[in-house]
Amino acid sequence: MLKALAYIFGFLLLGELITYFFEIPIAGNILGMFLIFLALRLKIIKLQNVKPASDKLIKYLVLFFIPYGVGLMVYFEIIADYWLPISVAVIASTVITLYISAIIIEKFGK
């Protein structure tokens, strides 16, 4: 578990390091996700070396964003003024997104 966690943190650090030095507009953790996938594909690291930690992190993913959700209370009055346009735009966009991705794979997938 400790080793697995060190690998995950290591790839996060690597991602942050690259974005820091090259000033590319992508978050370090997203780069870290891409790099760890690549490292697994190229067999630089083994799945069983990282799986214990990654499974646990994914299992509790929703717990980790609760504090951000609570932070919405600070902005509640600001967005309350725009609740109707926000709801309309977000719901319409979500339905379009759902339909477009579903219809492509339904028509052309196996």
């Binding site: 996938f37 499974d55 994914i58 504090p67």
Partner: peptide, 23 residues
């Protein structure tokens, strides 16, 4: 959030963990 940020810190490594899930 003085305590909350200890919890949300784990979002960073969780995104990296999604790469493992994808593989």
């Amino acid at each position: 959030n003085r305590g909350g940020k200890f919890i949300s810190f784990f979002l960073g490594p969780s995104v990296v963990a999604l790469g493992v899930f994808f593989y």
